[in-house]
Design a protein around this nucleic acid. Structure first.
Lengths: 335, 335
DNA sequence: GAAGCGTGCTAATACGAATTACCTCGATGC
DNA sequence: GCATCGAGGTAATTCGTATTAGCACGCTTC
């Protein structure tokens, strides 16, 4: 009951009057171990009395695995925050710890090195980060990609093409034909697919995206503002805009309201991701729900299964996405 | 150059033709060690060629510290996300890893136990979480509290009372006298101080907060909505409201706009924290900047210094806060 | 009563790096 | 020429846990 720290299995052993090995056998519940019930209880009681906690560093050293998952995110933006939260939840359930790294300036490789040193059982990261790794840096690593399919590593991803398609369907169903798209310039699978699905569906309905209605900006709030400003200054304004993520859409909304453009009266806006804040702004943002937490949770499960020796390669599947209709989209007004 | 994993200091040693001890001495740059320059270089080259990374579990086991910081947050809401981000930045600079735990349902104690097992060098957590620990659970732990002063542990905190005072000053300076406050029911130091500073400053100017203008709700967006609805239904509506955090203020803003109440024309709203989203909504939210990232960064530095043996007790200081005037507050309109 | 057989536990070792005590070897002192 | 000394390195031990091989003891069996 004294200092709960610094207690080792040896301390428990001597208090219970057994050997350290026995303590380990009891506490690790090794099924192959034959332990008399009375001994087991003496050990358990001694451990409880001393407040014994196994040293996970020592355990990890022996096992050559740490029971920790590494997560490397480009930044703690709303999307990745949800992913991390999902990872965290599953990890906690399974008794794993989570080592979090924010790879702000392309120093993903350095962070991965650190996590390697920790013998993480699994490493969850985004595609951009993974791409920045040296060829052999990921060797022997149980790597799980978030939101980008790959044939080299297992992955979890949402159905980004469907996301784009759903957005298009929604806007078309409201009668819009003058439609614009704002997406990032970065060559990232998710955004590429969202765009592809969106454009394809528009085309299927005879709507083409003119180049002046396709704006490339940073995937952030201020990027969305820039994109929207450009669209508002066009001779022929669109009546609806799909932004490749919610942050940009929030920027677009801001700019529209600042310009006294009625949303959704004169201009329908859609985002993608369904981050928390989409429900908070006025009007609430129509968007496509990506279920980022679920994505993180699945990545964690995949990582844990991979760490336990299962081959999870190709058990990957795309998570369905869902239209979330809110207040920022409406019928095109009769003109 | 082959598998960068699994390389031990023994491998480096045999490749460089020296003993493992020498490798360790070279790589740990022990100042007391006398190593010939030529040997040092042979070792460094061998290490580089093999892509050697020290095993941090083994290192931690020897040192009885892990070079990792634990962070336990009640949830990854915008505020704590910023805190974590600040911790992360400093940790990365100093070569520390960050073990993140989200203690969703009062299971902070359990998470702390996990982190204990990891021999974390420092543990950063909020006051509510710390309070939920058993009396001896924090024994021997290098614990740093976020946003709650304590004489038992070092802490970092913002000047919450000043935050409330600044909010009051701002609203008063705009001519408001009919003022309301929305805060949480939870007995948390930060919120208590914000309220105290706010109320005291009002009183100093002869403005009292009637009980119907003091709403207690959950510290969330929907809590803010409830509070605002209550205020809007009063016979004598206030002309300005201070919310104890930005999430609640965003809820209040939403509710006001939904009720066609002009903000800031008929109703000035203020939040506190200056989360990212405060700048995104329309109108932009006036608030008090708390500098959560800086709070996290300082907590991390304190934890690291504490881990290195320095006594950081009472080197604690309150971080100044700052009024951020934006579009959700304005002069009271002449009636 | 010697051989056989489980049961229940322990001794010993490994995991990989850090650290301490000590050893060797050449140069120096007198 | 013998003791001294410091520079440069190594062998051995430690950290705390998991695991394997094997010991001791009691019970059966013929």
């Amino acid at each position: 009951m004294t200092r709960a720290s610094r207690m080792t299995s040896h301390d428990v052993a001597s208090r219970a009057g057994v050997s350290q090995a026995t303590v380990s056998l009891v506490l690790s519940r090794n099924p192959r171990a034959r332990i008399a019930t009375t001994t087991r209880e003496r050990v358990l009681q001694a451990a409880a009395e001393l407040g014994y906690r196994p040293n996970l560093l020592a355990r990890g050293l022996v096992h050559r695995r740490s029971f920790a998952l590494g997560v490397v995110v480009p930044s703690l933006d709303p999307f990745y925050t949800d992913v991390v939260s999902g990872v965290q939840r599953v990890a906690a359930e399974e008794g794993y710890a989570v080592l979090l790294c924010e790879a702000v300036g392309g120093l993903a490789a350095q962070q991965v090195d650190l996590l390697r040193g920790w013998s993480v059982d699994g490493l969850i990261m985004d595609a951009i980060g993974a791409a920045s790794l040296a060829a052999d840096a990921a060797e022997g690593l149980n790597l799980i990609l978030v939101d980008e399919p790959s044939d080299r590593w297992p992955w979890v991803a949402s159905d980004s093409e469907a996301a784009g398609r759903l957005a298009a369907e929604h806007l078309l169903s409201l009668g819009h034909r003058e439609i614009a798209f704002v997406g990032p310039a970065t060559d990232c699978h998710v955004f590429r697919m969202r765009e592809r699905g969106f454009v394809a569906e528009l085309r299927r309905h005879g709507v083409t995206l003119t180049s002046e209605r396709l704006r490339r900006v940073q995937p952030s709030v201020s990027g969305g503002e820039r994109g929207m400003r450009a669209l508002l200054s066009l001779r022929s304004r669109p009546t609806a805009v799909f932004f490749a993520n919610d942050l940009m859409a929030l920027g677009g909304l801001r700019t529209s309201l600042a310009a006294k453009v009625q949303v959704p009266g004169e201009m329908s806006l859609m985002g993608c991701d369904d981050i928390e804040m989409a429900r908070v702004v006025t009007p609430e943002l129509s968007t496509i729900a990506i279920h980022a937490r679920e994505l993180g949770a699945r990545a964690a499960r995949l990582a844990i299964r991979g760490a336990q020796g299962e081959t999870v390669q190709n058990s990957s599947r795309r998570l369905p996405v869902k239209l979330v209709k809110r207040g920022s989209t409406s019928n095109v007004r009769p003109s």
